[in-house]
C-alpha cells in the first residue's frame, strides 16, 4: 500500500482511474503518517506503479541522431526510493526530463500513476506536473526576490491546492524540512543546504506522488549533503516515492534501489 500522508487535501486525484486499486489517495488532510514498511505490495493486489516506462526511447535530431535514451523499461512502485546513477552525458537528465513530463519520448510509453502520458495535451501534462510530481533541482531554482514562504507557496498556485489551505500547508512543509524559522528570509541570504531544504519543501507541498531530484547535492558540501539526504530518508520513511538522479556514489548508496544508465541504456544494479 502506498502511504500517503503527503497527499492530503487534493480532491481524489485518481478518480475513475481503472488501473488504480489504491483508495487512499483521498486521505483527509493531516492524516497520520502510516508506519512505513518499504516493501510494496505484500498480501494486497499489487498497486499501480507510480512510474512505468515501456520501451521508452528519446533521440535528438542531428547528424547522426543522438540516442540519449534507448528502449528503457522501468517500474517504480509507490513508496520506492530509487537512485539513477551514471556518468555525465549518459542520459540521466534526459531520463529526468521524461519522467518529469518536461519532454516527450520519441517512442515508447510512459505511464504516470497508470496514466498514459504520451498523447496527453500540454495542458494535461502541466496539470500532472503540478499535481503529481515534485521537482528538486541541483541549482535550487528559488526566486531570489521572494521570501522563503512565498517560494514555497509558489508551488500551490498551479497545482490546485485549495486557497484556504495554502498557508497552513506551506508552514507544515517548511516545518517538515526544518526551515520554519526562516519564513521571511530571502533565498540569497540562506546557505546552500537551507536553500535546498526550501526547494524540497516547495516540492512536497502539493503532495506529489513522486519526488524527482536532479543532482540534489551537486551544489552542496558533504555535510549539508548529508542533511539533505537525511531529509530524503525521512520523506521516504513517510511514504513518498523518490527518484534521485546523481553521479555521486554516496548519494546513490542511500537509496535501497539503484538504476544505472550508461550511454542511454538503463539497467538495474
Amino acid at each position: 500500500m502506498r502511504r500517503s500522508d503527503v497527499d492530503p487535501g487534493r480532491a481524489d486525484p485518481h478518480r475513475a482511474d481503472p488501473h488504480r486499486a489504491d483508495p487512499d489517495g483521498a486521505a483527509p488532510p493531516g492524516a497520520d503518517p502510516h508506519p512505513a514498511p518499504d516493501a510494496p505490495g505484500g498480501a494486497c493486489a499489487p498497486p499501480v506503479p507510480v512510474i512505468e516506462l515501456r520501451g521508452v526511447a528519446r533521440s535528438f535530431p542531428g547528424d547522426p541522431p543522438v540516442q540519449a535514451l534507448r528502449h528503457a523499461d522501468l517500474v517504480v512502485r509507490p513508496g520506492e526510493y530509487v537512485s539513477v546513477v551514471g556518468p555525465s552525458g549518459s542520459g540521466k537528465s534526459t531520463l529526468l526530463h521524461l519522467l518529469g513530463l518536461l519532454d516527450r519520448p520519441t517512442s515508447g510509453e510512459y505511464l504516470l500513476d497508470g496514466l498514459a502520458t504520451r498523447e496527453l495535451t500540454e495542458r494535461d501534462r502541466s496539470a500532472l506536473r503540478g499535481g503529481r510530481i515534485g521537482f528538486v533541482f541541483q541549482s535550487f531554482h528559488l526566486l531570489p526576490h521572494r521570501t522563503v514562504l512565498d517560494n514555497v507557496l509558489l508551488a500551490t498556485l498551479y497545482s490546485g491546492v485549495p486557497r484556504t489551505e495554502r498557508r497552513d500547508r506551506a508552514h507544515a512543509a517548511l516545518e517538515r524540512v526544518g526551515m520554519s524559522h526562516r519564513l521571511d528570509f530571502l533565498p540569497p541570504v540562506l546557505s546552500g543546504g537551507e536553500r535546498q531544504r526550501v526547494a524540497v519543501a516547495r516540492a512536497v507541498i502539493a503532495s506529489p506522488h513522486v519526488l524527482l531530484a536532479d543532482e540534489p547535492t551537486g551544489n552542496l558540501d558533504s555535510v549539508t549533503s548529508g542533511g539533505v539526504l537525511d531529509l530524503f530518508d525521512e520523506l521516504h520513511a513517510q511514504g513518498l516515492t523518490l527518484v534521485v538522479i546523481t553521479h555521486d556514489a554516496t548519494v546513490s548508496a542511500r537509496a535501497p534501489r539503484c538504476v544505472r544508465i550508461t550511454d542511454g541504456v538503463l539497467q538495474e544494479v
Binding site: 481503472p18 500532472l128 490546485g160
Partner: peptide, 30 residues
C-alpha cells in the same frame, strides 16, 4: 490506453483533474 472518461468536467479532452478553478492560479494569484 487512454480510458475514455467524460469525467465531471465540462471541458472535453481534459484527462487530468485540476482542482477547483478558483484554487488554481486564479485572478488573485495572477
Amino acid at each position: 490506453m487512454l480510458p475514455a472518461r467524460a469525467g465531471r468536467r465540462a471541458r472535453p479532452g481534459v484527462v487530468v483533474p485540476r482542482g477547483a478553478p478558483l484554487d488554481r492560479f486564479g485572478l488573485r494569484d495572477l
